[in-house]
Design a binder for these strands. Structure first.
Lengths: 207, 207
DNA sequence: CGTGTCGTTGAGTCCCATCAAACGAGGTGG
DNA sequence: CCACCTCGTTTGATGGGACTCAACGACACG
């Protein structure tokens, strides 16, 4: 009933409309949930990091496209048995409810980014959000004052889809943030945030 | 433990950061959830219609500003007793989980509107979404081919906050949709949608 | 009649999308 | 080893869609 599955970088995991055979928990890597309009415009609607839950108990079909950004390992459960387990285990249900409510809050907070922030603010928001979640996952990392090193596996295009921008604009704004000393673009997709508090100020988060 | 509360049009219901004393179910009217940046930019992150749930079991403080658009009646429960009820009633928990998952899907779908659609598409999306939910609530309304009459109590500014636009742009786009025959602006805040399928085509929904 | 709220309309501006070109890194095969 | 290709990224020039600023009209209310 429970099994692990690995997806190489960039590979699709599921398409919207597919029958939903499994639900899963993210073990490692980043899963991108996105929606695509028929003319090709794409919007990322969720970034799933390790410990996040993927899929929807009680729904027959997949709601959004899911793909692997970087290499991904999932811990999968067949949906039907999982639903029975859920029905017999109130504790599991309430845990899942709590996680879903957290995701809903996060989704709503992100709506504010998409609806009201400028390009520069959006890029800073993405960096800050990912940095915060990454440090939450790995305690003892990124104490105040020290540059925070990230390696997150999104291409410029994937970031643009997250932010409702074009990849060119993302590239320009990353460059601008780097020129302003808020960001060091590392080799490959690594990057460092020398002053996370100052970055937070860019997006209107109290330092 | 359970009691009803009425809010006049436009009145605030709760502010983000307040201690969360109650949770509630919307009985009538429309509740707007929104987030405000410190420079005043506001983004609506959820529209709650009758039967929707307001508040978050297990959280001490309110996450988003809530206010009444039009007159609102809520069915309130004190949070602590409600949480105990939830713990003792697996069925209620799973029902709430299901509702939350639906809201999450809706929030994610809306991200696509905020991130990728044009002003015209956004306005059409709002009309279409509200029309669809309104007809779902009142069965036997709005059969195909007949003009669908709506009376939804959002000012131009509230619509703009929903859509990530300015109120002037909303006004212009409503005017343009009306000129194109997709919409009849009624007296006051009433309006009619003569051709809902053609409206759906505007937002890339299959007719 | 003055005042406030809501809605519409116009003119000008700016930010970001678009189109286009070039660059670097990595892989492949001759 | 080097040409060659692909993919991701950067950078530049240009235009357009939405924002901004502003004025005006409609209506309700005291």
């Amino acid at each position: 009933m429970k099994f692990y599955r690995r997806f190489p970088a960039g590979q699709p995991i599921a398409w919207a409309g597919d029958p939903a055979e499994v639900v899963a928990s993210v073990v490692s890597g980043v899963v991108v949930l996105s929606q695509t309009l028929e003319d090709g415009r794409a919007q990322t609607v969720g970034l799933l990091l390790p410990s996040d839950f993927l899929g929807r108990p009680g729904r027959e079909t997949v709601a959004f496209d899911a793909s692997a950004a970087g290499e991904v390992t999932l811990c999968c459960f067949r949906r039907k048995p999982f639903e029975r387990l859920l029905a017999d285990s109130p504790h599991l249900t309430s845990r899942l409810l709590e996680m879903t409510l957290d995701e809903l809050d996060a989704a709503r907070a992100w709506m504010s980014v998409l609806g009201r922030q400028t390009a520069r603010e959006r890029v800073a928001s993405l960096l800050w959000t990912v940095a915060r979640r990454q440090t939450a996952l790995t305690p003892g990392r990124g104490r105040a004052g020290q540059p925070l090193r990230l390696d997150f596996p999104l291409t410029r295009e994937a970031m643009a889809n997250c932010l409702g921008l074009t990849l060119e604009t993302v590239s320009r704004q990353l460059g601008a943030l780097a020129r302003d000393g808020l960001l060091v673009l590392g080799p490959g997709r690594a990057l460092a945030l020398p002053d996370i508090d100052h970055l937070a100020a860019e997006i209107g988060e109290a330092a």
